[in-house]
Simulated assay, not measured.
Amino acid sequence: MKIFYALALISTPFFASAKPLDLKKVSADSNWIMHMNFDSVRNSEIGIFMEDAFENMPEVQRKVLKVQEKYGIHPMKISSFTMFGTGEKHKGIGILEGGINAEIVSGFAQSKDSIEGSKVGENTIFSSQKGRRPMAFTALENGKMIFGPDRDYVSDGIFFANGFGKSIELHPIHQSLTGLLVDPGFLFFANVKNVMEVVEFNEWGRSMADKIDSCGMVIGDQNGELKLVALLKTTSIEVSEPIENMVRGGLAMMEMKAGKDSNTEQILNSYQVTREGKIIRVEVGISNSFLIDRIKKEIKKSV
């Protein structure tokens, strides 16, 4: 388990410098989008450290090789992962690009009695009812893997993964997110107003969602920090001030709690909360050197 934890640290996308999301690979009906890009991780300060650490961890390398040989997925060669959907519970499309050997993936799926395959055009889509909820997937010859709750979602995902979709029209908050950081490695956006039309919230969830029009977040490497910048657009100016105060209070409590522990006192290197009209902006910075020190400790535990 510790080996897999170290592997997860090494392959984490939050230290990556990402290429822009190709919006033709996202459904125009999407109310939420999450995009992670792994391509430039090796060029960042933390990425260089983690790559060097990986080279000195033969046991982890063996684990990676076993995953590749058994499942057809090479974690260190994954390029990007994108997910999107309307907001309907447990329904969406995931597109994994890079590091996929379609022949091995298909061979593994065919070896399992709990997985059924069906042809859709030139592709075989595999489905399974085992587990907490149904799942379907396929691996393409161009090194991509598509996930969804059933074969119809995966079939649509193949269409989008190949760049045949109509480019999604950017929401103003989504548009603003694209300019907050230079090459962010993680992006999330949700049109909460539209999500509410397809999701049944509980009473507390609806009371909160009623106050939020849309929100989003980007994470990237900037000036020696892992920088998180979030935008939240409220439904009215009247509710924006109390939400701003709630966010300020939460960060202040986090800073106070972290300051009482020498192991976490540097976790919040910087933070700022500002508001302009209905839009609240939150910036949080975590020191790269702090993160590297923590990663070193976790790696020592895993070997």
Rank of each mutant, 00 (worst) to 15 (best):
W204K: 12
V282H: 02
D210I: 13
K24R: 03
R62K: 10
K89G: 02
M246S: 05
E241S: 00
L177C: 02
A16F: 04
L180K: 04
N31D: 09
V229I: 11
S114T: 14
N43K: 05
K144A: 10
V273H: 00
F81Q: 10
G249L: 12
F290T: 03
I33A: 07
S30F: 05
T264W: 09
Y5F: 01
T86V: 12
L232F: 11
E103Q: 11
S118Y: 10
T86L: 10
M256D: 14
G87E: 02
L23H: 11
V192Y: 10
E244H: 07
M50T: 03
S262D: 08
R151G: 12
S111H: 14
V218P: 08
H90P: 06
I104Y: 11
L65H: 15
V26S: 04
S236A: 06
K227E: 07
R281N: 14
S106L: 06
A258P: 07
K166W: 13
D183P: 03
N101W: 00
K297V: 08
N56A: 14
I115F: 08
S270C: 12
K166L: 14
F126K: 03
K300F: 14
R62S: 09
S262H: 05
Q222N: 09
A8N: 02
I100K: 15
M1Q: 06
S11T: 00
A53K: 02
K296A: 13
N162P: 04
L232S: 08
I10W: 05
F84A: 05
L268Q: 03
G285S: 06
S30Q: 04
D150G: 06
K301M: 15
L228S: 08
